[in-house]
Simulated scan of single mutants.
Amino acid sequence: MKIFETLADASQVARSRQRSSAASGHEEEGELWRYLREITDFIHQLGQAYRFEDYLQGVSLTSSPYVSAALDPRPEVSSRRAMALALKALAEAHSPEQARPTLVLLNLLNFLADTAQIDDFEDFFTHRLDYAPLAMASFATREEAEAWLKGLEEPLSPARIIVGDQYCLAWYSREDGSQDVSRDFTIEPYIEELTARGIPPDSPAFKSREEAEVWLAKHPASPFAFLSIAGEHYLAVHHKRLKRHTLHPVELSLREWAEWKRGSERLPAQRGKIQED
């Protein structure tokens, strides 16, 4: 679990510096720290923690910092400005322990550049609130997803995928070799919030899913849209990266979400009772 702790420490340092910059009135600097912090989210959501761990084997976290030649050389570009900020923070560090999280952030940026992911991250960073929660792949069935996971040459840390119409987590543990695909309640909080605001009375209505999908192909949700199929309300979610929509039955989704939350609340209480016994 070392790489996940490393990423968590780096994210925490970036968040702290972001807040400090904002409190000092340095909004532009704070935004660059947010840029660096959200790289850790991007890495997690695409299941690339182990891939980054392997990348770190080729760079030093103690000597002079490496700066990728693949970074855009223009000083006004966000990635180059973020790198300059990280290098400045690194130069001001008073100890190797203090420098290490900043080196990790710096190398996350190098990693994106060296693996040609800067543009994808820029899109993620700029439009995060405009897109549905990120998923890295889509499968018709759980069996397909499990076969894909098993066949990966590169070890995958937890990453969101779509199976049918459900968000799931595909995960692999490098430590013990275990792996699985499990349900992930990612979209349900959105359904709860959007439903609480009220389903528009003029939402489009269709007789079948096929009709709805034909309409959505010409009218992509941005990223969410309510519609009804055979009298039942659905939330359509547009996955731009995957070039598809998922359709989530509102009533069933809210019921399953409520059951999951109740189960999550019972777990700590049960653990506490076991400890008392």
Rank of each mutant, 00 (worst) to 15 (best):
T6K: 01
L7G: 04
A8R: 15
A10P: 03
Q12Y: 08
Q12S: 14
V13Y: 04
A14F: 02
R15C: 04
R17H: 04
S20T: 12
A22I: 14
S24G: 08
S24E: 13
S24F: 02
E27T: 12
E31Q: 15
E38D: 13
F42G: 05
Q45I: 08
L46V: 05
L46N: 13
L46E: 08
G47S: 11
Q48T: 00
Y50D: 04
F52R: 02
F52Q: 04
E53S: 12
L56F: 06
L56S: 07
L56V: 10
G58L: 10
V59D: 03
S60N: 07
T62R: 11
P65R: 01
P65N: 09
P65W: 10
S68N: 10
A69M: 02
A70Y: 15
R81Q: 14
R81H: 09
R81K: 15
A82L: 10
A84R: 14
L85D: 01
A89K: 02
L90V: 01
L90P: 01
A91G: 08
A91T: 08
H94S: 11
Q98V: 02
R100M: 06
T102E: 03
L105M: 03
F111N: 10
L112P: 01
A116L: 08
Q117E: 13
D119N: 06
F121D: 01
F125G: 07
A132M: 08
A135W: 04
S138K: 09
F139T: 07
E143Q: 11
E144C: 00
E144G: 00
E146L: 10
W148K: 06
L149K: 06
G151A: 12
L152P: 00
E154L: 07
L156N: 08
S157Y: 01
S157T: 08
A159M: 01
A159N: 03
R160F: 09
C168P: 00
L169N: 15
L169M: 15
A170T: 10
Y172F: 14
E175S: 11
G177W: 14
G177D: 10
F185G: 03
I187C: 05
P189S: 02
L194N: 06
T195Y: 12
R197M: 03
R197W: 02
D202E: 14
F206H: 13
F206R: 13
K207H: 11
S208C: 04
E211I: 03
A212G: 06
E213P: 01
E213C: 05
V214H: 15
L216N: 14
H219C: 11
P220Q: 12
S222Y: 05
P223M: 07
H233R: 09
Y234D: 03
A236V: 05
V237R: 02
H239Q: 09
K240Q: 13
R241Q: 12
R241T: 06
R244I: 00
H245I: 10
L247M: 12
V250M: 03
L252V: 10
W260G: 02
R262I: 01
G263T: 07
S264P: 00
E265A: 13
P268R: 07
G272I: 03
E276P: 00
